[in-house]
Nucleic acid binder design. Sequence first.
DNA 1: TGCTGATCATGG
DNA 2: CCATGATCAGCA
Length: 227
Amino acid sequence: MRYHDPMVTAPRDEEELHHRATALAGSTLGAVAGRCGLAVPTDLRRSKGWAGRVMETALGADGGSRAVHDFAHLGVELKTLPLQGPTEPRETTYVCTADLTSLGESWEASWVGRKLARVLWVPVEGDPAIPPGERRVGTPWLWSPTAEQTATLRSDWEAFRERLTLEGAAGLTAHAGTWLQVRPKAAHGRARTAAFDAEGRRITVNPRGFYLRTAFTRALLAEAFGE
DNA sequence: TGCTGATCATGG
DNA sequence: CCATGATCAGCA
């Protein structure tokens, strides 16, 4: 094995993926990281995506940082869900970048819609008082949106698209959306990406991404584990 | 530069 | 107190 080869091969199907994830439940992130040869940071200030990278590596995700699903051949997205307490999401959940020049033809065809079509949720302790390496992995579950969830997500997305068309990129504020929202997503405030203004002129703005509100992931947790 | 992984930190 | 807006790291 060359040093840059993944230590864990990609799971061949959803069952294997789910089985692997379930086997990690109860472990600390430090223990999982150790088995993958990943260093454990003292805090997350300069390692914000660490928990997600640990789980990706441990489960054999093959998507890397490309714009494809984490488990490309399965069409499954992996999301760690930091919890404060047993069932409370600590943060909104980033889904993907928003193309501000065109959200897409339809919810189903959109990148955000396809990412959310199938997700392996992995709860992880997210209490900042717990050092990253001591945080425990929870019970994972595979999820696809119900018809009702899809209807609301689609409606949020269509409202974003409408705003983008009528008002340009400035019309997309983080206040809109029941379960989805559009927020800045960039390395820093000077980052620029292509967009349009209300008159349809080409402009450049701070990049945005789609996020799931905590109200939504809280509902998913209740659905998966009961209240 | 843009996409992935997210959490940080301040204003309302 | 918590959502919005800002930011951090790695890779292509």
